[in-house]
């Protein structure tokens, strides 16, 4: 039996790893291996693994970050959806929707600014729905803005409003123009 196996024999129920290292002092092979490790000879004396400690801290930071990127448990951790151009446009349209549909009256606008936490979803087709309760394949779009553009009624209304505004603009300007002309004449006299 070699010395080493003696050391680990179970007759001697007390094992001291530290001592075992000292016994091997003359044997450089362990030291060679340990040289490149971040674990030094005092490792066995430490109460906690410094590496694990660091990762615990990292974990905490990670958790905090995750917490901040959701609305929290009171809203089932709703995520902070990435803001894309399309989504931003949709949110803007929602913000202005009172002016979009003349037949629909909204309560006072309760949408303040762009939301921080939100998700983008789609109404599900239900098998019990009438066909009139579904958008046709052609009407189906990936954003609210595109949906509006595909809505013929909306486009017609929008065009009409645009024209009205243009005419009004011309009229008011014409009035102002004439007034200015008259004033000029008066001043000349």
């Amino acid at each position: 039996m070699s010395k080493d196996s003696d050391l680990f024999s179970l007759n001697n129920t007390y094992l001291d790893m530290h001592k075992s290292y000292q016994r091997n002092k003359n044997d450089n092979s362990v030291q060679e291996i340990m040289k490149k490790s971040i674990l030094n000879t005092d490792y066995g004396m430490l109460e906690r693994d410094p590496e694990c400690e660091a990762s615990l801290k990292q974990q905490k930071i990670q958790k905090l970050k995750e917490k901040k990127s959701t609305k929290g448990p009171d809203w089932f951790n709703m995520k902070n959806t990435k803001m894309t151009k399309e989504v931003q446009n949709d949110l803007r349209v929602l913000h202005m929707r009172q002016v979009l549909d003349p037949k629909h009256f909204y309560k006072k606008n309760d949408i303040k600014g762009l939301p921080k936490y939100f998700q983008v979803g789609k109404y599900v087709d239900s098998p019990t729905d009438f066909y009139s309760a579904r958008l046709t394949k052609k009407e189906r779009k990936s954003t609210i803005v595109e949906e509006l553009m595909a809505d013929a009624d909306f486009m017609k209304y929008n065009k009409k409003k645009h024209k009205e505004r243009k005419i009004k603009h011309i009229k008011t300007h014409a009035k102002a123009h004439q007034k200015a002309k008259r004033l000029k004449k008066k001043n000349k006299k």
Binding site: F118, G121, K122, K141
Partner: peptide, 23 residues
């Protein structure tokens, strides 16, 4: 709201409740 239309879901003031905003 018709099947297939898009909405934006936001948390409501009351915990556990949400609003779907569309037309």
């Amino acid at each position: 709201m018709k099947g297939g239309s898009n909405v934006v879901i936001e948390p409501h003031r009351h915990p556990g409740v949400f609003i779907a905003r569309g037309k």
